[in-house]
Design a protein around this nucleic acid. Structure first.
Lengths: 138, 138
DNA sequence: AAACAATATTTGTTACGACAAAAATATAAA
DNA sequence: TTTATATTTTTGTCGTAACAAATATTGTTT
């Protein structure tokens, strides 16, 4: 099989996944990127996160995290404080409002994900992941 | 296995693929999207393509094809003529310069694709594709 | 023909990714 | 201490995606 075909298939599937996720989030007025940043901040469990910490955990490392977080602050889902020990750094927290919002959305996303691949056998899901991890990006 | 893990893995792999392709194209001053439009136009083998034809064949159907093509016209890789029979339509052609350019880039992309998954067994490539096609986006 | 609907493309807006450069602060070296 | 270097975040710019609305043209109906 042509390598090109595999790549194109994967890119198309990714595109479809994105559409599904976007569509599910749309009624809630939040983008996938903002949603992911919120999830990262929730994962901190009250511990402050620096911008760089968030950035490391994001999929798109080159995105502009400052402005993504600006949007979340506008919505009062996130708070930004200047770090006392090192004033170059900032400290980011998810607010209560952000937590409530996120908890509301989680099942929506879970449902979309299950719809997309919930019918796959466990063995098949593991096979996809193991095959994808064999891709070489060195 | 968690469906979420499969989805996230796929999104991350797609991200890496994009980086590899982008990096390969960068020295040539062209984006993946522009490159793909050029390939679509080459596939026409001299037959004019309408904007809508190009759009149908693109992966990102919602992208702004008009402006993507504007960029290619600036580079003299594409020509745009208003269709005589139906002046709402436009006719798009890849130029000779565009063809030469594309032929120069093809092997570069092929090489990147081979580097990423050329080492996979034929059977494994087919397995990935067949598993990915089982995803449900209805 | 005039009005209306359908089709094809363009334009405008918002959000984000990629990336370079600037700004602010901290740390280390001379 | 002054200078240089490193770190962290912010800002600016461009390209593109998503999407709505506008425009132009054609086709259809009355």
């Amino acid at each position: 099989m042509d390598s090109k075909k595999v790549i194109i298939t994967l890119i198309k599937i990714n595109y479809e996944i994105n559409i599904q996720l976007m569509t599910a989030l749309k009624p809630y007025g939040i983008s996938i990127q903002q949603f992911n940043v919120l999830r990262i901040l929730r994962g901190q469990k009250g511990v402050a996160a620096n911008l760089s910490t968030v950035q490391e955990r994001m999929i798109n490392k080159m995105s502009n995290t400052t402005r993504l977080i600006d949007k979340l602050i506008e919505k009062s889902f996130v708070e930004r404080i200047i770090c006392k020990e090192n004033r170059r750094k900032i400290e980011l927290f998810i607010t209560n409002k952000g937590l409530v919002f996120l908890n509301q959305i989680d099942p929506v996303i879970d449902k979309v994900e299950e719809k997309m691949i919930g019918h796959l056998k466990n063995q098949d899901k593991e096979k996809v992941v193991s095959l994808l991890k064999q891709f070489d990006f060195s």
